[in-house]
Amino acid sequence: MHPVKPAEEIVVLVDQDNQPIGVVTRKIMRQQRLIHRASYILVFNTCGELFIQKRSRSKDIYPGYWDLAAGGVVLEGESYEDAAKRELREELGISGIKLRPLFDQYYEDAANRVWGRIFACTSNGPFALQEEEIDEGRFIALGEIEQLNRIEPFTPDGLLLLARLPR
């Protein structure tokens, strides 16, 4: 069995109130900028530093940007938590970790409209980074993110959720 290409994955569409209204392929969702769901997982180490990942240049949105969260779109038949667990396993090679739900947020820009559920978890690694999705990753203190963002871009939806995190 061949794995489904990302563009062919079936994603859940939602309305402005985050109520499911249908499903389409990821490709159509991106082309038409349709509102969808995504899970964001903030991975902290026991020192309180956040694991950030540099998105692959082949990503369909924000290629080459730093991402504060592992995660991705919620597929048909998945809950936010199911998607979060799948993404942690696929992107970082970790499983069996307790997820702490933090909050939901809506984000919109010229390329993206998404209802995200933000989770946090604790892991010191080691991580097995998914080559197709992540070029590199490292732990960083929350207070250093703004400084790095002056030199290298971070995903705008990630920066929005960072502003809501308790310090």
Score class of each variant (00 low, 15 high):
residue 20 P to K: 02
residue 78 E to C: 01
residue 73 V to L: 08
residue 126 P to W: 15
residue 22 G to M: 10
residue 98 K to P: 06
residue 15 D to C: 09
residue 65 Y to S: 02
residue 127 F to Y: 10
residue 3 P to F: 12
residue 14 V to R: 04
residue 26 R to L: 15
residue 68 L to D: 00
residue 50 L to F: 03
residue 17 D to M: 13
residue 12 V to Q: 08
residue 41 I to F: 08
residue 14 V to E: 04
residue 41 I to T: 15
residue 74 V to G: 02
residue 72 G to M: 10
residue 32 Q to S: 04
residue 151 I to H: 14
residue 118 I to F: 03
residue 142 L to A: 01
residue 51 F to M: 01
residue 45 N to Y: 08
residue 133 E to G: 11
residue 102 L to R: 05
residue 8 E to S: 12
residue 139 F to D: 07
residue 88 L to S: 04
residue 53 Q to S: 14
residue 15 D to P: 05
residue 27 K to N: 14
residue 109 D to W: 05
residue 119 F to I: 01
residue 148 L to C: 03
residue 67 D to H: 11
residue 31 Q to W: 10
residue 72 G to I: 08
residue 158 G to P: 12
residue 94 I to T: 09
residue 112 N to S: 14
residue 5 K to P: 09
residue 116 G to E: 03
residue 82 D to L: 02
residue 138 R to Y: 03
residue 156 P to E: 15
residue 1 M to Q: 10
residue 102 L to D: 01
residue 26 R to H: 14
residue 20 P to H: 05
residue 149 N to I: 05
residue 167 R to H: 15
residue 40 Y to G: 13
residue 12 V to R: 08
residue 2 H to E: 11
residue 130 Q to L: 13
residue 137 G to L: 08
residue 14 V to H: 04
residue 73 V to I: 12
residue 92 L to E: 02
residue 45 N to R: 11
residue 109 D to L: 07
residue 19 Q to F: 14
residue 155 T to W: 01
residue 11 V to E: 06
residue 43 V to T: 07
residue 101 P to T: 06
residue 51 F to I: 06
residue 49 E to N: 13
residue 113 R to W: 06
residue 118 I to E: 00
residue 24 V to T: 12
residue 57 R to T: 14
residue 110 A to K: 15
residue 57 R to N: 14
residue 120 A to K: 02
residue 126 P to N: 15
residue 139 F to H: 09
residue 90 E to G: 06
residue 166 P to Q: 12
residue 145 I to L: 03
residue 157 D to F: 09
residue 97 I to A: 09
residue 98 K to H: 09
residue 104 D to I: 00
residue 143 G to S: 10
residue 14 V to D: 02
residue 70 A to T: 06
residue 62 Y to A: 15
